[in-house]
Amino acid sequence: MPPKKGVGTSKGKQPAKRPPAKRAPPPALSSSDDEGVDGAQQEILARIAALESSRGVSAASVGGAKRPRSTRASSRVAFQTEVLKRLSALEGTANQGGDDASGAIEPGETDLPGESGTDDQAGSQVALPVAVAVDNALGDGAVAHRGRCSILICGHSFVFWAAHQAKRTAFGSQLGLSQWATVEWQGRRGLRWPGLLPLLFEGRCAPPPHILVIHLGGNDLGLVKGKALSLQAQADLRLIGKRWPGVLIIWSDILPRRVWREALDAKAIEGARYKANKALHKALEKGLGVYLPHPGIRAALPDLYRGDGVHLSFKGNNIFLDDLRRGLLEALRHIWGVEA
């Protein structure tokens, strides 16, 4: 009998060998990845390609025995590790350089007239001392307190819109006082005087402020008489002083308006506003607090108001914010002994 053919053979021939599987090439960088590589990294990648090319040419020209595969693999791993270290170092340098621009004003922010720069820039120019309150007859609230002064600005829609605009100014929401104080805003649109005490005392978890700025009363005129409003305001300010011993109250006077809504006689409302401010000014001078006027805001200047004739325009809000900052700086000088 003829010999049997071996398993897997065809007509006495040896089985065909399968070619080794090819490794998938590394994924190519996308266009977005190329955009993320800076000039220094591109230069390193070009040097890597040139070095690998030169190594291939030199190996072919030598004509000697090639190095073992394990040795070549370990050399390539070491080479790639060194490249990654250099790329990481470059990325770290780039990140450090980007921190220098953190104090820049974001797009859309605007400076107040005649002012420029941010709080951080101002602090880098002049080193100012930490605010320290000294003992006086104000009580236990803001007395003998070392550190940062807490300021609360509360009121109706004028405070609400002023807080929004302050974020877009060079001084920021802290009015340029962040080196000495922390400013908190509580503006409630449509707020009237009966809502002040609930706004301050109901649901408030933060400790009492050292300085309290109140801008309120404009929405009440026309509903109550100016004298009644001033008497109610004085009584509530005394109550606030008892609930928060040592707090410094700054009264921001009621601003004029070009239009008094639901008012039959605008001149009579303007007269009531004048009398209420005058009565509160006298009461504050007797120890109730500090009076903060706004002489630059007048109803005769239409560009200081919006089209409704009630709310302040961008220019009017800038004057209002500048008055607040001026009054708070003056209070910090006298009560906290800061120098600016």
Rank of each mutant, 00 (worst) to 15 (best):
residue 210 H to Y: 08
residue 340 A to P: 11
residue 60 A to F: 03
residue 32 S to I: 09
residue 228 A to W: 12
residue 59 A to I: 07
residue 319 I to R: 13
residue 146 R to S: 14
residue 15 P to K: 06
residue 39 G to E: 15
residue 280 L to A: 09
residue 318 N to G: 01
residue 109 E to M: 13
residue 153 I to E: 08
residue 267 K to L: 02
residue 315 K to N: 03
residue 256 P to T: 02
residue 316 G to E: 12
residue 6 G to H: 07
residue 193 W to Y: 11
residue 257 R to T: 01
residue 277 N to P: 05
residue 197 L to D: 08
residue 156 H to Y: 10
residue 314 F to Q: 15
residue 265 D to P: 04
residue 85 K to A: 08
residue 244 W to V: 09
residue 19 P to Q: 11
residue 170 A to E: 05
residue 208 P to G: 02
residue 115 E to M: 04
residue 275 K to M: 12
residue 283 A to C: 09
residue 105 I to H: 14
residue 25 P to R: 13
residue 292 L to G: 05
residue 57 V to S: 02
residue 112 L to Y: 04
residue 328 L to V: 06
residue 226 G to L: 06
residue 178 S to C: 13
residue 28 A to C: 07
residue 23 R to A: 10
residue 94 A to Q: 15
residue 232 Q to G: 15
residue 85 K to V: 10
residue 225 K to V: 04
residue 234 Q to R: 15
residue 302 P to L: 00
residue 118 T to N: 01
residue 51 L to K: 11
residue 317 N to H: 09
residue 286 K to S: 13
residue 232 Q to V: 00
residue 130 V to C: 07
residue 96 Q to C: 11
residue 12 G to I: 09
residue 186 Q to K: 15
residue 99 D to L: 15
residue 263 A to I: 07
residue 112 L to E: 14
residue 302 P to Q: 05
residue 12 G to H: 03
residue 249 I to Q: 07
residue 71 T to L: 03
residue 93 T to H: 13
residue 238 R to H: 04
residue 291 Y to C: 10
residue 40 A to D: 13
residue 266 A to Q: 11
residue 11 K to Q: 11
residue 338 V to N: 02
residue 332 L to H: 06
residue 242 K to G: 06
residue 9 T to D: 00
residue 249 I to C: 09
residue 72 R to H: 08
residue 316 G to C: 03
